[in-house]
Design a protein around this nucleic acid. Sequence first.
DNA 1: CGTAAAGTTGAATTCTTTCAAACACGGTGG
DNA 2: CCACCGTGTTTGAAAGAATTCAACTTTACG
Lengths: 243, 243
Amino acid sequence: MFFRSNGSTGLCYSCPNRHFRFCKSLLNGSSAEFDAHAVKNIAVIAKQYLYRQGDMNNELLVLREGWVMLTRVSDDGKRQVFRSVLPGELLGFQQHFHGPAIYSAIALVDSVLCKVPNSVEYYSTQPELALSLATSEACDKMLTEMYLGNITHRKARERIAFMALEIYHRLMLRGLNNEYTIQFPLKQEDIADTLGLTTIHVNRTLHAFRDEGVLQIHKHQLTILDYEVLYALAGSRFEFGPI
Amino acid sequence: MFFRSNGSTGLCYSCPNRHFRFCKSLLNGSSAEFDAHAVKNIAVIAKQYLYRQGDMNNELLVLREGWVMLTRVSDDGKRQVFRSVLPGELLGFQQHFHGPAIYSAIALVDSVLCKVPNSVEYYSTQPELALSLATSEACDKMLTEMYLGNITHRKARERIAFMALEIYHRLMLRGLNNEYTIQFPLKQEDIADTLGLTTIHVNRTLHAFRDEGVLQIHKHQLTILDYEVLYALAGSRFEFGPI
DNA sequence: CGTAAAGTTGAATTCTTTCAAACACGGTGG
DNA sequence: CCACCGTGTTTGAAAGAATTCAACTTTACG
């Protein structure tokens, strides 16, 4: 009702088929086309790193099930969480195919991934796939820009409201929600490092949201109690441009 | 000395040939290859909008000369500056080829741009170009992520130091610097809207930098007075990953 | 059941914003 | 040539938001 469920009638920053075209069929249960391209599957357990910042052996991966978080620790020891990677999304592509990774990728829950061929030669012969790759990167860029706009000039409760709705939205498009509840493996510290706040302030704000009956996070489950209030706080950032 | 001048020996978020391969030859003066692909040139004057947020008639453009800034005004009236587009860089690509623009593009100085074919059909037949497009988007994404990391958890002087060096670096790679001085058309308000600060606080911080002999902005010229101090403040964010 | 990890709370401090006003500068027209 | 005007910059004082530091409670897990 608030979110549009596909990108056909307007601009939608994250639709299930936002990445490789074959991801769509993958998500729909038919993985024949996907298997034709994929090299092999990987299963990882919670808290396991897929790769770490600086690693050279980069691979292009698609997340099939689970939850992956992209983080980077800077020189001063502070940690930046860039984003969460949700099922059907791509991770691991960067400017230099075999350069060092900018950030680490860690699985927050038991996950299943799929390696995808990653070489200039391969994509040069597959124009549609290369174009899908460009589209995928454009989506990631837009998501990052949305977070940039969310953090810039905005207060803690607005930032948190945005983040909660953004992730809820993205999961909902994949049918991974249960009414207004989603699985949410992020710690308060992760939220803080995503939004540029301290863990303490995130805690206080979440506490206030709970008291006000707006939002609740309990036992790795996030429940939206008052969608309208959250949406107003988030500032309609889910619809870039006119509908 | 601090910055590496190309992307061959390590990870460089912004090298002159970061975008379409033919941009490189363009920058080097030989534009034959470029002209073969390009549709036509456009000259715009300072303060002219190339397109505005919500516009549907999107075009893929390459900036040949000048300075373009990408901005968006959100519902609450606040303005977000996403980034500056410098000569040789691409702008206008997004997930949906003919969807509404997320942000406005405005030329800050007299500029020259070049239209590039922008259709699924065109790129489907040109795998190398599509791959260049993906690489270009990956570069933009990295730049946005750097700014995200810069704003998150960092104080005003660190943010400003980073921004000054980042832009200086990007211009230097194109040979558009004069020793430690660059042309800098951004107003203090633009810096504020880029970094999530108020104009007033930017002003105070710049004033302090000038007094300390670190950085100076005068008459649209930015001069780095103490590189070492700025670099320390910026936090080595120019080299993602190990050298 | 004990230890570590995650979450919670309070008080003081720091950074940044807000509001209000003045100043500098370039361009315009009389 | 000078007054005028708008834009952009500068400054001060008060208020507000978020951080820091420290301690405590609860939860998760072997």
